[in-house]
């Protein structure tokens, strides 16, 4: 809870699934620290443990061993209801699947976390209008989730995750169902909130999304094999003399 504590600190985090037969290690001893305001992209082949890792960081999957500290507080020892409170107060989550409340409008889905977080109805509404506007969904506010396309639902889920201005945004393939244009809206919003200091840990295959991050963590077989900043490219600045594309000469 101290001001300078990292937002996320995982120590020797392990997850072993056992469904019937042999135990299957999904995450094998991950150490990860994310400071306030950092944007970390988690990459790696499918089955490398990326989703399991962020699910554990959000308390949606229990760890087998190791420690999770969020905002300076030990979290892996919390009960399920303890996690629920922590998530409501500090964590925004975007999944590959959307989990919108089916019998509530888009607007209510987005406002709910902010209202639960204790902000006034007016603030919740303004935040919702801002987020849906940024994601090109202003005119869908009164729709129900079932009336939306997959891509629209995914963007609503992102708006909901950001409604509460959470200490930590966790996202698992947040652009998985989006076409180019919708991906661009999501990227722009992620860039904006990151610019405003939002801490983000995001699993993605999409290099456009990953390239927004300050830092990339690569997983392979449940272990971190690379963790470091995305460098400045050594190429001369683009825009004056682009050499991005080599057309046949």
């Amino acid at each position: 809870m101290t001001a300078d504590a990292p937002v996320v600190r995982a120590v020797n985090l392990v997850k072993i699934y056992q469904t019937g037969g042999l135990p299957v290690p999904a995450v094998r001893g991950v150490d990860l620290t994310v400071e306030a305001g950092e944007f970390v992209a988690v990459m790696g082949p499918s089955g490398s443990g990326k989703s399991t890792l962020v699910h554990m960081l959000g308390g949606l999957d229990t760890r087998t061993s190791g420690e999770i500290w969020l905002d300076g507080r030990r979290a892996d020892t919390l009960s399920e209801s303890g996690w629920a409170v922590l998530r409501r107060e500090k964590i925004g989550f975007v999944f590959q699947f959307f989990n919108l409340v089916a019998n509530m409008t888009v607007a209510d889905n987005v406002e709910l976390p902010a209202l639960l977080g204790g902000v006034s109805p007016r603030q919740a509404r303004e935040r919702r209008e801002y987020l849906l506007g940024e994601l090109g969904l202003a005119d869908r506010a009164e729709a129900s989730p079932a009336q939306l396309s997959g891509g629209e639902q995914q963007r609503v889920a992102l708006a909901r995750a950001l409604a509460n201005q959470p200490r930590l945004l966790l996202a698992d393939e947040p652009t998985g169902n989006l076409d180019s244009r919708n991906t661009r809206d999501v990227l722009r919003l992620l860039g904006k909130v990151h610019g405003q200091g939002q801490t983000i840990v995001l699993v993605t295959h999409d290099a456009r999304v990953a390239s927004m991050a300050d830092r990339v963590v690569s997983l392979l077989d449940g272990q971190i094999v690379d963790d470091g900043a995305i460098p400045k490219s050594r190429r001369r600045p683009l825009g004056a003399a682009g050499d991005v594309v080599e057309l046949r000469s």
């Binding site: 990953a210 470091g228 683009l238």
Partner: peptide, 18 residues
């Protein structure tokens, strides 16, 4: 591989900004 991945992501960032 790790160095190359970071380099590709840096190039992607350039393309996005372009």
């Amino acid at each position: 591989v790790n160095r190359q991945r970071r380099h590709y992501l840096a190039l992607m960032r350039d393309l996005r900004e372009l």
